[in-house]
Nucleic acid binder design. Structure first.
Lengths: 156, 156
DNA sequence: AAATAAGACGCTATAGTGTAACGCATCGGA
DNA sequence: TCCGATGCGTTACACTATAGCGTCTTATTT
């Protein structure tokens, strides 16, 4: 699994390959079908660490001749999200590859407003603080999503 | 200021009145103009503790005869957000009144998937944990938004 | 191998959310 | 009173997402 990655300092080709290999393994393990379409969408999502919009994906898919319609890419994205391979960033209406597929975790994202790259983290300290605060209100937390806007290390 | 409120156990009429009075005071203090339109939108947003969609607001505005167009309500919402009187919940494309207008705080929301009501909290423990984790990545956090889905105390 | 059932995709149409741009009205200060 | 800035009405449109149906493929059963 990739874990927390600094988008600026890594071999991205290897990064993508790892992501795809992970996806293959996870789908095989869960009895899910990573079809050509789904695989291609996943690869496009992973083409950078910037979040990608569904319609950008659609355009990218169309660049090799066969233009698809929105439901195609949305279905692929739904599958990938259900499989835990992709996250959606609500603040951007966009999608990024999951940094730790297969592992249970919450969505915690650092989004650089300069370079647009996203770092996914999984800080127990945060999740724990959230669970505590929720419980203090008598609230049972099921899913938590955190999106932090700011400036990444390289862009400062 | 209202602070953290349990939507199920409070005098909501007073709650709305407080919110509007706060808004008046804050706008006066900042030299902002809380026009009739803006005030009405704010009142509608505060009509419950459930998040409200922009087009719901639009419908509500239209119920008294004069139908408005989308830009009208979006402009009012933009003003109210800039003034710190209203928050947008990205996971729902919807808006809620701010529980602590005038005070600097992060967006931290507990959203009940049963009754749809939203509790806004401001837990220092969470913000601190977020700031720490971000800094550990060399990331300078500017804004953080947390949306927690779950079940509130009353709905359990 | 043939029949069958479930799943995946293509396609059309449409719903839902949000903005650009222009002009008129209104408000506040010079 | 005049003027500039701000707010609002209106039209048109962009962007995001889904419903519904038909067809083809895949996996399974017979």
């Amino acid at each position: 699994m990739n874990g927390t990655v600094n988008p600026h300092e890594h071999d991205h080709e290897a990064c993508v390959e790892t992501a795809l290999a992970n996806a293959e393994a996870i789908c095989k393990g869960k009895g899910l079908r990573l079809t050509a379409m789904r695989r291609q969408v996943l690869e496009l999502v992973w083409s950078s660490h910037e979040p990608v919009g569904a319609y950008e994906l659609l355009d990218a898919l169309g660049r090799d001749g066969k233009r698809s319609a929105p439901p195609t890419v949305y279905r692929a994205l739904e599958f990938l999200r259900d499989a835990g391979l992709v996250h959606r960033l609500d603040s951007l209406n966009a999608f990024v590859g999951c940094a730790s597929p297969g592992e249970a975790h919450h969505g915690q994202f650092l989004i650089c407003r300069q370079c647009n790259q996203v770092i996914e983290i999984d800080a127990q300290a945060i999740s724990a603080a959230v669970a505590d605060s929720a419980l203090a209100c008598g609230f049972v937390a099921e899913r938590q999503t955190l999106e932090v806007q700011g400036i990444c290390a390289q862009c400062q």
